[in-house]
């Protein structure tokens, strides 16, 4: 299947990645050839095959919902690009 520029614009919107028109062109070309390659899978009949969702034989383990670290607010905030006292700061979202 070929992927056109409009499709690239749509999925880049979904993925929250802004693209200029040159990048959009290149990606349309790249993704078209990649999907052509991927679509070899259509040769295979998988009507009677169950999808493999986990390669482990047992179900995923869940742990008790308890705090085992915590009290590291300052440390966490150290890595934030913009902070104000104990908050992460983002551009204004409410007018």
């Amino acid at each position: 299947m070929s992927i056109d520029k409009d499709k690239i614009k749509h999925i880049s919107k979904l993925a929250r990645i802004s693209l200029d028109s040159k990048k959009t062109d290149t990606l349309a070309k790249d993704l078209s050839s990649i999907f052509k390659f991927i679509e070899q899978l259509n040769e295979l009949n998988t009507d009677k095959t169950e999808p493999l969702s986990s390669i482990l034989n047992e179900p995923l383990r869940s742990r008790k919902d308890v705090v085992n670290d915590g009290k590291i607010r300052e440390k966490i905030l150290e890595n934030s690009p913009q902070k104000n006292e104990e908050f992460f700061v983002v551009p204004k979202v409410i007018e």
Partner: peptide, 11 residues
């Protein structure tokens, strides 16, 4: 979903 089925075939 198709890929997960193929993954089963490979396994």
């Amino acid at each position: 979903l198709k890929a997960q089925k193929v993954r089963q075939l490979i396994k």
